[in-house]
């Protein structure tokens, strides 16, 4: 395997970034009290605590209130189409597997319109950290049903109450092959920071579904709702290497709603580790062109 110089460490002194270094070019336009402020703060804190350089990180989102996040953090960022962040992120990760890629977005973006990419990104175990700001409602389109809205919820698109069952992303993610599956709550900041740090440090697909209550359009699943019900898995004695326990805890929804790390396995390589074409270093940095002898071999196949 060819050795390549770590572009960050080669000839620059690694100064530890501060929260201030991560301030984005724009200020958040979220509603006062929105849970997403908590995710932004926790993500910055996690990056700082892990000592990642802002230029080593790329934050990729789709569309929605929460998907505006890349504009509010000073890393590389992509604000892609609705539902497509994971597909874009997969391409970017394979093109330059030295980047630390964080995907951010909402429940509608990720579990609704982006559902196909969600499932397949987990199946592939792409090395991404996916933080879903799950507020169980469509916010930017002014309050319609989302894939995680509870049954019976009254919204603008379900004025008589939703008759559909919601998706529970935790067991879905475990079944689909994600190798780090966690749930956070913006009302538990330190806990959320630890979950994000765990995700960023994990080699493989990490999902951190985060209750990030919408103060404007979801009065059913409010900050108070989660504050009363969420319990940390650590305190419940959960073993995140136990598949059946993870599925059971992940499916629990009632007076106790578990948060924390449900499932982790570290024995599976991430997609980029399985591709020999990456042995020579990030593809994005390779010189282009085909060597004459290789070109001749390609032509000889046709003769």
């Amino acid at each position: 395997m060819a050795t390549t110089v770590d572009q960050a460490g080669a000839n620059t002194e690694r100064a530890k970034p501060t929260i201030k270094d991560l301030k984005g070019r724009a200020d958040p336009d979220w509603c006062p009290g929105c849970g997403d402020f908590g995710v932004l703060a926790a993500l910055k804190q996690a990056i700082v605590e892990l000592g990642l350089q802002p230029y080593e990180v790329m934050t990729i989102s789709g569309i929605g209130c929460s998907s505006n996040l890349p504009g509010y953090i000073n890393t590389y960022g992509m604000h892609t189409l609705h539902g497509r962040a994971l597909a874009v992120a997969t391409g970017a990760q394979l093109a330059n597997h030295r980047l630390k890629i964080v995907v951010t977005g909402g429940d509608g973006d990720g579990y609704g319109i982006g559902g196909n990419h969600f499932v397949h990104s987990m199946r592939r175990n792409v090395d991404l950290t996916y933080i879903v700001m799950n507020n169980q409602v469509y916010g930017l389109t002014t309050g319609q049903l989302s894939p995680t809205s509870i049954k019976g919820m009254n919204t603008k698109s379900t004025p008589f109450g939703s008759v559909e069952n919601p998706i529970n992303p935790i067991p879905l993610a475990i079944a689909a092959g994600a190798t780090y599956v966690a749930r956070g709550f913006t009302g538990q900041q330190k806990h959320l920071v630890e979950l994000i740090k765990g995700g960023l440090s994990h080699k493989g697909f990490a999902l951190i579904d985060t209750f990030s209550p919408c103060v404007t359009y979801n009065h059913d699943n409010s900050h108070e709702f989660f504050k009363q019900r969420t319990r940390k898995l650590e305190e419940l004695g959960h073993d995140p290497t136990d598949f059946h326990a993870a599925m059971a805890q992940g499916s629990a929804w009632g007076e106790v709603i578990p948060i924390g790390l449900f499932w982790r396995r570290q024995d599976l390589p991430a997609l980029d580790q399985l591709e020999p074409v990456l042995n020579g270093g990030p593809l994005a940095h390779r010189p282009l062109g085909v060597a004459p002898d290789v070109a001749q071999a390609l032509i000889n196949e046709l003769m």
Partner: peptide, 17 residues
């Protein structure tokens, strides 16, 4: 949809995609 978006991600990172 995934195809073109993946290609765009790779292209943004620097590959010809």
């Amino acid at each position: 949809i995934g195809v073109i978006n993946m290609a765009i991600g790779a292209a943004h990172a620097g590959c010809r995609a």
